[in-house]
Design a protein around this nucleic acid. Structure first.
Lengths: 205, 205, 205, 205
DNA sequence: TATGAATGAGCCTTCATTCAT
DNA sequence: AATGAATGAAGGCTCATTCAT
């Protein structure tokens, strides 16, 4: 068997953890809950992860990866850059707005990270990845379109993702207040507002 | 004094709760920790708040109020609207960037609200207040300056606060990545980018 | 109430601990067992003793004190020194031979002390007390009788108690092999053998 | 080699157990610790010893044998009986005072034996062996020298070993209190004190 | 109004043991 | 003969909650 049984169990445990955490939140999730969800004994969970912390760290990494994957997909889908910005933004919002289990877990553990240093590493990496994606696809594309950013380009993706995450939090608290359509529209306006046309640059490159 | 003895104790408990929550986070804070911080017995805390949830709800309301107060102050300081936008934004960011105890508590309980409906009300109200402030001061001011928002004006404050909260989260996770100055600059650019000049409005006022 | 309720509970817990430890030994005794024996909840035991270690430390101190009390009584009973040596030795052996709960606990925790430094202090003090008793009563009495010890007088009580404890261990392992009578006889012979008559010292005192 | 593969493993496990027990004590030693020390899996340990008790029983037997071997050596070394008593006693003390792994294990499991009948057999046999050694070498030798024991000769070795074990316990608890030199001196005085010269017995045997 | 004592459920973790491979 | 995975019963400890005083 390519996939050793242990690896399979580990994956099942991590998967179940994400489901339970999304449902109940970190503070209300016990290893017993997770064990029940996988259909294993508590002992089995501890066999694969020595401590709850170790499991949570792995879970967070996995959840971040999942969100990052959708982020990557958001940017790589389109062929014609101009047209695809909107759909990319839409997808980025969807990842959050749908409140997928993984996105919930990331949001939840993000708050834990305020007081648990160990959780910060995967999150920092996730943000850096998200930044690199925007850098690569949005910033450079707009560059080709003869648009120049009005703010430090390195900050730009941080602004974008910050905005998305912040809006997500408002939506969690008050779902009525933040409509999908409005968000997408606003995002597009915003994204474009941050660039200005650089007219007489024929971009000989 | 306007306070009844009991009200004084209630305030002390809430104050201590905010300090402890800021220090340790919701998941790691027990009523015992809070009782120690106020210098009361656990029983006394329960005398004033029947359950932990009730206390947390009150704590969140108080913390939101405190942040809202600083938000209000941020907008009312200036006399000359044009010049004060930057300082207002700066103040809004400072409330978060300084990571005051109250701001930490709001962030922490925000995550709890994901799974605890009861906590959502104070947060929703807080956001609505923040929205009203921006509406009142920024949107209307810019209106007077002959600037027209490019997005639904009601969404505008949500975007602003969303962005601020989102950037805060990134800063918690990776303090190096989000510099104060850059944030302020970007905010200003952004705020202004969302409006466009409406030329032939002589604004007779 | 002179005796606060808490003190009473503490005493009950320590008492129950001694009974359970005597019955089951340290390695097989859980806090649950102790809680059942006192008729309290596990939580109540933890309310009075923050950790199992803290409880065990207190238990050992109490058990040592109990044995020390009987040791003290052993030496102070007699009026006529010459005649009472035998009865004192007998009593010292009885403390052990009867295998009172306290004596068992001391023996059990003594072995734990091999690997748990924290338990050594009460035991060291117990031995020092035992030494002082022998010093005070046996050594000085024999001195008055014109007998001079053949070994360093300070070591003498250590030899006596060492012998008693060592014989106890053999008896635990193989009860048939160590008869009470023989032990007492041997002890007396031994005790006297360690002194020699110093003839021409009229001891004018 | 005389060993079957399996016997070799058994020996390795027992050896490792003695090392770990000496280091951590019975109450703190798990089969996992032992398995790690041998470099086997927990399963393998269970393959050779069905239960922990069975292993401990074997371990105790082995440890007792090791101590017994040194005891035997202590007595058989010398050629000239009179002179060698001191060196024999010294060796008997050294076995304990050095706190060899085996001696520690014997002391530790001795306490377990208080509550675990199964462990008593090997210890009882060990004591009986120790007794026989003293009988054979000390008692008979002294007999040849015209010395008559003042106490039941059968008890004599029990007294000797009891004393040694008891002093060891005191030394564990309070290392400063029991000096090697003093112990040896005292032992010699004691050993000789227990005999009296029987002058006109030419030993016709 | 406040305390100290106690409860009981639940938590993370450890561990001897079993078993398929 | 040995391993790795898994079990399930405790074990020590935490904690929100209750209650007599």
């Amino acid at each position: 068997m390519r996939y050793k049984k242990s690896e399979l169990s580990v994956d099942q445990i991590v998967g179940a953890s994400i489901r339970v955490l999304a449902r109940q939140g970190y503070a209300r999730t016990s290893l017993m809950d997770i064990a029940k969800e996988v259909g294993m004994s508590k002992g089995a969970v501890h066999y694969h992860f020595p401590t709850k912390e170790a499991l949570m760290s792995e879970v967070l990494t996995t959840a971040c990866d999942a969100v990052a994957d959708r982020t990557r997909a958001a940017w790589t889908e389109g062929d014609r850059p101009e047209a695809s910005i909107r759909s990319s933004l839409q997808e980025l919002w969807s990842v959050r707005a749908e409140l997928s289990d993984e996105a919930k877990v990331v949001a939840d553990l993000l708050a834990q990270a305020l007081h648990d240093r160990q959780l910060r590493a995967p999150l920092a990496e996730y943000y850096r990845f998200a930044v690199s994606q925007v850098d690569e696809h949005l910033t450079s594309h707009l560059d080709k379109l003869g648009l120049k950013p009005k703010v430090d380009p390195h900050l730009l993706p941080r602004l974008l993702h910050g905005l998305l995450d912040g809006l997500l939090m408002q939506r969690i608290v008050d779902p009525e207040a933040v409509k999908d359509e409005d968000v997408i529209n606003a995002l597009e306006v915003l994204a474009l507002s941050l660039f200005e046309l650089v007219p007489n640059t024929p971009d000989p490159q």
